[in-house]
Design a binder for these strands. Sequence first.
DNA 1: GCCGATTTGTCCGTATGTATC
DNA 2: CGATACATACGGACAAATCGG
Lengths: 243, 243
Amino acid sequence: MPRAKYDHIYLDLKEKIERGEYAYQEFLPSENTMVCTYGCSRNTVRRAVSSLVRDGYVQTMQGKGVRNIFRPVEQTLFTLGTIESFRESALRNQLSYSTKVVLFTELTADDKIALRSGFPRGTPLYYLQRVHYLEGKALILNHNYFLKECVPGLTPEIAENTIYGYLENTLHMTIVNSKRVMTVEKITEIDEKYLELNRNDYNCLAVVTSHTYNSDGVMFEYTQSRHRPDYFSFQDNAVRHPV
Amino acid sequence: MPRAKYDHIYLDLKEKIERGEYAYQEFLPSENTMVCTYGCSRNTVRRAVSSLVRDGYVQTMQGKGVRNIFRPVEQTLFTLGTIESFRESALRNQLSYSTKVVLFTELTADDKIALRSGFPRGTPLYYLQRVHYLEGKALILNHNYFLKECVPGLTPEIAENTIYGYLENTLHMTIVNSKRVMTVEKITEIDEKYLELNRNDYNCLAVVTSHTYNSDGVMFEYTQSRHRPDYFSFQDNAVRHPV
DNA sequence: GCCGATTTGTCCGTATGTATC
DNA sequence: CGATACATACGGACAAATCGG
């Protein structure tokens, strides 16, 4: 897939920053310089830079330049912060992972599910419970609700590997965005069982509920991810007021 | 302060969406239409729209239009997700709040603090412990470390009101971005004391550590916010691959 | 303090590509 | 096929902030 020019520049700069080509607090080359090095317009450079700002890699300063504020973050085993699937995160971190499907059923949304998920009452759904293991340790218990009409032919075998791969490669669906809410909840017996936890140790876990949309504007997935608290970390960069 | 044109359009569209002027899944006026209504160029409209995409308010679809995917989120008492201060969040939600300073000292960063905060060892700092109350309930215990040279003249009185107001209005500092990491940690005796918790109930809490930068590129604040789990909620919108 | 050079911020107009209908 | 809509990219103009002389 041919990447756009601005994306190429963005990735190139990001890689250089991560590699340490610019010291912390050092200025990057000016926009005009980059225009020459990349052979593109200033708008295109600025688009790449603004993505780096959003990611918290650099700060732009009017009249001065673009300053590197990247510092490698102390790595936790598993970090969120992006829309990556569990499998993608594991691959990126070069860790062994596996998934066990502990429940695979079909159901229609009742009032309770409808309220939480946003799917209308009566909608046919797949309901899955899956446990994700990293390096042999159970880290996440997922409750997935998929819109049945959007995920035809889903099987436990697919669910054991990569649902997103199936959606994107086989069904040619494009995942666009995911609205997430993070909370802390009391542990349940199901959590204790599958995450091999003991509530005398931790009696809470980190819960991420997400509503995910595809490129047709359809919310096709509602998921509640219940994370072992000692392996959970979520990263974020917040930018003040300006867009 | 005169807002930029694109920001005006962004806020206007956002307000219309929140007010329900467009139904869920309905398309907004086309970019060309907006060019006319706002009397600006297409670039300016697109800039505003792309901010709405980032916020999870709309989805753009090539060849089709801009679709409203906003749904009012079930409100928790206190929600994060932006770089707002506690005080700003409370005001926005029209809730009564107060802050109690339980510790106000000066210190220099030792190795332990340096490692966690990123301030070099030996840096002179203010160290504060503050409890934030909403509607009379203790919700957050903050451990703030401020770079002393960036916050001259800080007093417990200021800390009891609004430090950010002091920074921005009196010291004319501009806060730019904040890198945050969210985790779940075991409760401590200090937490129990100030947040009026009992570890037989919840024995964990939500912890947000943040490194905050000003417009001079200086990381002037390191804060660990420890939140009551039952009142903690963090919202986010993740956008897949494209910028 | 002023001036000019540099750098980022905002905005505009235009052209072309691609997807949808 | 043509019309419409968003996506990418270019080039130019001016404003605003910074810095050095």
